[in-house]
Design a protein around this nucleic acid. Structure first.
Lengths: 360, 360
DNA sequence: ATTTTTACTGTGTGCGAGCACAGTTATTTT
DNA sequence: AAAATAACTGTGCTCGCACACAGTAAAAAT
């Protein structure tokens, strides 16, 4: 009647060996005779044994150190949210008496060198796991090779590097994100002359990000046939040049029906765009405060949210599961493309903090 | 150096009593002298003791029975998703060797009597906890009183009954949902003569739901001043009457710029509406397959998603936490108002299954 | 033939909390 | 004053797994 769980003890009994032997077989520790191995495996095969993960962690009071290779949260509110998600995961694990230590290795978003430096730092400290936003492809590659050599498990957030054996990637489908951006721009105005996708302060490191989003953006245009022109513009803050003026000129000269800003920096251009022509649709990324304010005042029409909080929380949780429970999961977690308007923004702000995703 | 966790053992030592005594104080089991109680409490006060939840559950191999009072998943795809969320929670708990049994008590959405009957059934079986969608206010009230009498903890999903001492409510802010619906309708067409909020097959049990959404809907209209008329229409499937024809007549005679369907039944009317005039905006609720198909073909413009899967999964998790870990949480979990378009729908479908929210 | 090595196997303890039960006082009853 | 009861306190076992260590048997070396 009772669906009693089968334990190592039971398997030992059924196989006619000791618990120690079963344990050795299960963990492939060797030093087991062929005969015994076979007996155990036979029982194992038809018993559907599932280790009790709770019991497993009880004895393990080890404090795992997880290195975090992330853009400096102080420098960018988006990455601040990301980091907060990690702290949230840590908090929850602590509640369960599972101790992890987060070892911060922050780098400068605009400096490949600082990424490199932080990465070397991590190799030196030999953490038990690494959560990394591998924004600089080339630099990341060799770092990841080192990690793999040292058998340190790592998880990607935000950016994937398919060539590496990460235990998981957590992020969004950028192509679809670009398509969604285009679709949202088309809500108010349908047929139009020209639409713009605007990249701000993005030199090379995010090249792949931008290209994917752009591809989605233009594909949507082409498929729907709603516009005959999409323009991709990159604009940077340059010393000696007036950024606002530069933006105004570009928008003024192109007169687009809508602008998709490919990063979280919509707040830097939305007021300028709307002051030129309030009818120009503006869609940006990420629910950071500056964007949120403009969303409420109508200077931004839609925000596509990545939920960095949940993404990186999940990242830590996956690593923790890997280490504490020796569980592994699907390797790709594509987050929903969240559409935020002035009317549902508040509901997303409430939402971030409350839950703890344990991957299954 | 090591942030070693403080254990019952340590407290016992510090207080100069045995572990048993500390345990009795912690659990208020009585049979402790005033002196000992005080000694323990003194140590407890400054030691910030947090029980090890993992160790706690290890010894407890009890299988908790959770009763589920829900509309029959077979009869409604929305509630199917809800039920799947519960199964997902159960699955995850099983992985951790925490056993719960879901005792299904399904009722007919349209029958107060079946709700009543299922509720009585639950009282009889005396479960360890109850997850309930209390759609019928009056009938629920007395049932909930009985539960409280029997000290059975219960959680609400979808609908809240603030008068009852549930350990949690999980749902959405309906007022804001109505506002959002109105906002989405206004994306394409701004100023317009008339907007309609349409209730299908909703007699009385959902009165509160509908009223709240309607209130949000009309408030948004008034505030923005974008329309001078919002019409609330209720339409039912009546034997002997042609439903499609009735819908067509109503839409045809009112010629609204947009229609918000207040339930998940948008699929029943969207094709009719669009065939009358494709320019009429249609916004519906819930990511069920029928709606999804119409979203892809442009017969529905936006869907507002409630994520019943995650809602009810969280509900089970809260109950499990309550029972296994004796943890309690905030009592209200308002879910984000998810905006779904044809371009981001797929990303939401991927998303449902992968994560396990453990409330904090 | 005895020792050493290798190959294997079983026992035992700890992890932290919960609870049953035995054990020890103090208080009341006879 | 002895016995009975009540009031309290401490010990010890359990949960399931992991790992250390002790122990045994067979094979190899001396």
């Amino acid at each position: 009647m009772k669906p009693k769980n089968i334990r190592i003890k039971d398997i030992a009994q059924l196989a006619g060996v000791s618990q120690g032997t079963v344990d050795r077989v299960l963990h492939k520790r060797g030093n087991v005779s062929k005969l015994a191995t076979e007996k155990v495996n036979r029982v194992l095969a038809k018993s559907n044994y599932k280790p009790n993960l709770i019991a497993r962690t009880l004895g393990n009071s080890k404090i795992y150190t997880l290195a975090v290779l992330l853009p400096d949260p102080q420098m960018d509110p988006f990455w601040k949210q990301s980091y907060d998600g990690m702290l949230s995961a840590q908090h929850q694990l602590t509640q369960l008496s599972l101790k992890i230590e987060l070892e911060n290795h922050f780098f400068d978003l605009n400096s490949k060198e600082s990424f490199q430096k932080a990465a070397l730092e991590i190799i030196r400290t030999k953490p038990d796991g690494v959560l990394v936003a591998p924004l600089f492809f080339n630099t990341a590659i060799s770092f990841l090779k080192d990690l793999q050599q040292a058998a340190v498990p790592f998880v990607f957030v935000n950016t994937n590097i398919a060539e590496s054996q990460s235990i998981a990637f957590i992020g969004q489908d950028l192509y679809k994100s670009g398509r969604l951006g285009a679709q949202l721009l088309f809500q108010k105005i349908q047929m139009a002359n020209c639409y713009v996708i605007l990249h701000i302060d993005e030199s090379l490191q995010n090249a792949f990000h931008l290209k994917e989003k752009e591809r989605g953006f233009t594909d949507y245009l082409t498929e729907t046939g709603l516009s005959n022109q999409s323009i991709s513009i990159t604009i940077d803050h340059q010393p000696g040049k007036n950024f606002e003026k530069a933006v105004a000129e570009i928008i003024g000269s192109n007169q687009p029906a809508g602008v998709l800003i490919s990063t979280s920096k919509a707040y830097q251009v939305a007021p300028i765009i709307k002051s030129i022509n309030p009818a120009i649709q503006v869609v940006g990324y990420d629910l950071i405060e500056a964007n949120l304010n403009l969303l409420q005042t109508g200077k931004i029409d839609f925000i596509i949210n990545q939920n960095p909080f949940r993404q990186s929380r999940l990242g830590i949780q996956i690593l923790a599961n890997h280490l504490f429970f020796k569980r592994s999961f699907q390797s790709q977690y594509l987050f929903p493309l969240e559409v935020i308007t002035s009317e549902n923004a508040a509901s997303y702000l409430l939402h971030t903090g409350y839950s703890a995703d344990l991957p299954e």
